[in-house]
């Protein structure tokens, strides 16, 4: 059991990985100059979780803006999920967005196009 807790900064999102619940949450903007410093930890957590058991994994995203460096790193995460899904694993992505900003939908949609697992893009009222 490993917990992942990355506090958010101006240019990096808040990340929590709950091993027991099988839940990874990423919230906030992501535009660090070098995204692999931060995403490396997330990718390692996802790899570890997927290899450890056959429990389902749910990924809840509340990301508004990503720079292209973060987009590339996120693609690596989705590739891991897709591979696990192809091997019969139960994986789900829920991408929540503020309905006032439709750019998030196109960002999420372009990722979804290349994924065959359950990928929900849902409006959510701002807190």
């Amino acid at each position: 059991m490993k917990e992942l807790n990355l506090p958010g900064t101006q240019s990096t999102p808040t990340v929590t990985g709950n091993w027991d619940a099988g839940l990874l949450s990423i919230s906030g903007d992501s535009y660090p100059e070098n995204s692999f410093e931060m995403f490396g930890d997330i990718i390692a957590w996802v790899e570890g979780y997927l290899a450890d058991s056959d429990h389902p994994l749910r990924v809840d995203l509340r990301i508004v803006y990503m720079n292209t460096s973060s987009v590339r790193a996120m693609l690596d995460i989705f590739d891991l999920l897709e591979e696990a899904h192809q091997q019969g694993r139960d994986v789900t992505v829920n991408w929540y967005y503020d309905p006032r900003n439709e750019r998030v939908v196109s960002l999420a949609d372009e990722f979804k196009e290349d994924c065959s697992f359950t990928f929900n893009i849902a409006p959510e009222k701002a807190a």
Binding site: V64, Y65, R100, N101, R103
Partner: peptide, 9 residues
């Protein structure tokens, strides 16, 4: 908001 995000991006 969309234009602001595109300019920022």
């Amino acid at each position: 908001p969309s234009a602001a995000m595109d300019v920022f991006a």
